[in-house]
Simulated assay, not measured.
Amino acid sequence: MTKARELFELLAGAEELTVVCHNNPDPDCLASTLALGRIAAEAGIDERQILYGGSISHQQNRAFINLLDMELELFTPDSLGERDAGSLLAFVDHSLPGVNNELPEGTPVDIVIDHHSVDDVEGRFVDHREDIGATATILAEYVRELDVTVEETLATGLLFAIRRETLGFLRGATTAEYDAAGALHNHADRDLLRTLSTPSVSGATIDAISDSIDNRIVRGSVLLSHVGRTDERDALPQAADYLATLEGVETAVVFGIVEDAIELSARTTDSRIHIGNALKEAFDDVGSAGGHREMGGGEIPLGIFAGYRTDDERFVDIVENVVIDRLADSLKLSPSGD
């Protein structure tokens, strides 16, 4: 039995589906969630809910949810309630309870569909493909095989997610992404794709990106920078994407203090570096970090800086020094950048 058929059989035997997005869900997670919901509906599940943690602050992500008319609820300790045999719990675009999501560690998950580099993935149904460029590619494959109706909203969401996750097929794209995009192309709404691709940008995001430019440190082909304190968490990947395009830069890591944690976003085109592994090596003992060869991210609780007040004028400098030292060790950078 194929993975698509195996998933459908599991869904067909259930009455309720809850999909838990990872914290601060992006288009790949959101489109995959939308597609899983459509498959569940085809399997006869009428009770479906989507939960998320963190925030949805990126302009593109907010536009995605609004334009595709998705209904999401913020995760709370009471969100799951009493689960029975007819209730399924699913992860898409992430894999482990308690890692980049609000579920307590060890919570049993029924369905896991992901493409990130992680170990020890468990579930009644697991499709974990690290060699695929986007989770949306896997769901697009399911939709095709199961002959689920591909209306404009679903096709547009999946196609946009694949394009966004692979930076227009330039980062981590495989033949599977091209095949999926080809199948979705004629069903997608071109105007909606254009709108999703060009959302308005807030002044706070521009300020954060500007700060990352001012604070950059370049060692060889590696650029490290920070934005200080920001409420614009999603400015970090936007800053990393921009700084990675600077002449001579092959690897860019941008971090900032967001609420009670240090958030990181990284990009690389250097074939010698697996940026997800580098971030994991640098911060796995103090937080959650990882990702793919070409892109990664992480979150470090501020608790590792015990003894310093978050309103201390020196605090940002302390964070900068500690984070850059760890990154320099992990990326094997010399002080001069040689």
Results as ranks from 00 to 15, higher is better:
308 Y>R: 15
86 G>V: 11
320 E>K: 15
268 T>M: 12
157 G>K: 06
325 D>G: 00
92 V>K: 01
201 V>D: 05
117 S>Q: 13
20 V>F: 09
185 H>I: 10
298 G>A: 12
158 L>S: 08
178 Y>Q: 12
327 L>N: 06
130 E>F: 06
154 L>A: 04
257 I>S: 03
277 N>W: 06
67 L>N: 07
112 V>Q: 03
165 E>P: 05
147 D>G: 11
9 E>D: 14
126 V>C: 04
82 E>Y: 01
143 V>F: 06
337 G>Q: 07
189 D>C: 08
141 E>R: 14
176 A>W: 05
208 A>S: 15
22 H>V: 10
110 D>R: 10
279 L>H: 00
288 S>P: 00
300 I>Y: 09
29 C>S: 08
62 R>L: 11
44 G>V: 01
325 D>M: 11
83 R>V: 13
313 E>T: 14
27 P>T: 04
287 G>A: 13
265 S>L: 09
158 L>D: 07
193 L>Y: 04
302 L>E: 02
35 A>K: 05
79 S>H: 11
77 P>V: 11
235 A>W: 09
15 E>F: 01
209 I>G: 08
334 S>T: 15
72 L>P: 04
62 R>S: 02
312 D>F: 03
171 R>D: 00
81 G>Q: 03
127 D>C: 12
297 G>S: 02
164 R>N: 14
77 P>T: 11
268 T>S: 14
234 D>E: 15
183 A>W: 11
158 L>H: 06
45 I>D: 03
232 E>L: 08
14 A>D: 09
260 D>E: 12
24 N>F: 11
326 R>T: 01
122 E>K: 14
225 S>L: 13
286 V>P: 01
112 V>G: 13
221 S>M: 07
276 G>E: 09
30 L>Q: 08
39 I>F: 05
305 F>W: 15
314 R>K: 12
88 L>S: 05
338 D>W: 05
155 A>W: 13
304 I>H: 01
170 L>W: 05
247 E>P: 00
77 P>I: 07
13 G>M: 02
59 Q>Y: 05
323 V>W: 03
19 V>W: 09
331 L>M: 01
230 T>P: 01
38 R>I: 00
76 T>S: 15
93 D>H: 03
21 C>S: 13
248 G>R: 07
152 E>T: 10
238 Q>Y: 02
222 V>P: 01
170 L>I: 06
92 V>W: 04
142 Y>R: 05
297 G>T: 05
270 D>N: 15
312 D>E: 13
25 P>C: 11
